[in-house]
Simulated scan of single mutants.
Amino acid sequence: MSTITSGSLVMAFPIAAAAGLVSFLSPCVLPLVPGYLSYVTGMSGADLAERKRGRLLLGVALFVLGFTVVFVSAGLAFGGFGALLQRHAAVITKVLGGVTIVLGLAFMGFIPGLQRTFKSSRLPTAGIAGAPFLGALFGLGWTPCIGPTLAAVQAMAYTEASATRGALLSFAYCLGLGVPFLLTAVAYRKALGAFGWVKRHYQAVTRIGGGLLVAIGVLLVTGLWSDLTIQLQGWVSGFKTVI
């Protein structure tokens, strides 16, 4: 419990979840959501709108589980590396912050060519049985596309210097990315209407998302992230539940 309520995670967890949401709303994920839902259930778009939600929700849950395993494993590794490289933590954190700033600018479209997707020509079988494998493939193949937001989360995972905390931050990212998939499965038609609004405001979405990444990078480069973490740890440790 103390790991979850540590000052750094209290601050980083919601940021990581927000980064996941930004990834979901990005131009390289949102337009493909109906296709993913159709593939993981083996149903056409018309069937998705008409049939019961049980099969759709199960397929999407398995899909989300697939990419969650991939991203949490990466967070586990980055957090573990952070613990091993503590001696050089200050320098590496600044480097990761600089990279995050560059990727944030790329996410906003100021550095073209840095958001590419590597798609596998061999897709798993369509339907429920193939859903978790498609999720894992999404986690691996779409990493260059959602890389800016994911890189920011992994940079924060590194600064945690703990495999467990790194995994928790990646899990928060997966919540931000996965919950909208699940909500889409629950309310498919309404979600499609909301997608239309987001598509019409893609520029604003990418500017806000990129701005978030740049802000994280600046905090890492300047050392303010560590200062805020220490301050928040003091607040958390001094908090007492009122009975």
Results as ranks from 00 to 15, higher is better:
Ser2Cys: 01
Ser6Leu: 04
Ser6His: 04
Gly7Glu: 04
Phe13Glu: 00
Ala18Val: 00
Leu21Pro: 01
Ser23Ile: 01
Ser23Glu: 02
Ser26Lys: 03
Cys28Leu: 11
Val29Glu: 05
Leu30Cys: 05
Leu32Asp: 05
Pro34Glu: 04
Gly35His: 03
Tyr36Arg: 02
Tyr36Val: 14
Tyr39Pro: 03
Tyr39Glu: 06
Val40Pro: 10
Gly42Arg: 00
Gly45Pro: 00
Leu48Glu: 08
Arg51Gln: 12
Arg53Gln: 13
Leu56Asn: 03
Leu62Gln: 00
Val64Asp: 03
Val64His: 00
Gly66Pro: 05
Gly66Met: 14
Phe67Trp: 02
Phe67Lys: 13
Val72Tyr: 10
Leu76Glu: 01
Phe81His: 01
Phe81Gly: 02
Ala83Cys: 15
Leu84Val: 13
Leu85Ile: 02
Arg87Met: 13
Ala89Lys: 14
Ala90Glu: 08
Val91Ala: 06
Ile92Leu: 11
Leu96His: 09
Ile101Val: 15
Val102Asn: 01
Gly104Thr: 06
Leu105Pro: 01
Leu105Ser: 04
Ala106Ile: 11
Met108Asn: 05
Phe110Asn: 04
Gln115Ile: 10
Thr117Cys: 15
Phe118Pro: 03
Phe118Val: 15
Lys119Ile: 05
Ser121Glu: 12
Arg122Asp: 15
Gly127Val: 07
Ile128Gly: 04
Ile128Arg: 10
Gly130Ile: 09
Ala131Lys: 07
Pro132Gln: 08
Phe133Pro: 05
Leu134Pro: 09
Phe138Trp: 08
Gly139Asp: 05
Trp142Ala: 12
Ile146Arg: 12
Leu150Lys: 14
Ala152Gly: 15
Gln154Thr: 15
Gln154Val: 12
Met156Glu: 06
Ser162Pro: 11
Ser162Ile: 06
Thr164Val: 14
Arg165Met: 14
Arg165Ile: 11
Gly166Ala: 04
Leu168Pro: 10
Leu169Lys: 11
Phe171Asn: 06
Ala172Ser: 13
Leu177Asn: 07
Leu182Gln: 07
Leu183Tyr: 14
Thr184Ile: 10
Ala187Leu: 13
Tyr188Ile: 11
Lys190Leu: 15
Ala191Cys: 12
Leu192His: 09
Leu192Gly: 15
Trp197His: 14
Val198Trp: 12
Lys199Arg: 15
Tyr202His: 09
Thr206Ile: 08
Arg207Cys: 09
Leu212Arg: 14
Ile216Glu: 11
Ile216Ala: 04
Val218Pro: 10
Val218Arg: 12
Leu219Phe: 10
Leu220Tyr: 10
Gly223Trp: 09
Leu224Lys: 15
Trp225His: 02
Leu228Ala: 03
Thr229Tyr: 02
Gln233Cys: 04
Val236Gln: 09
Val236Pro: 00
Val236Ser: 08
Ser237Cys: 01
Phe239Val: 04
Phe239Lys: 10
Phe239Asp: 03
Lys240Met: 07
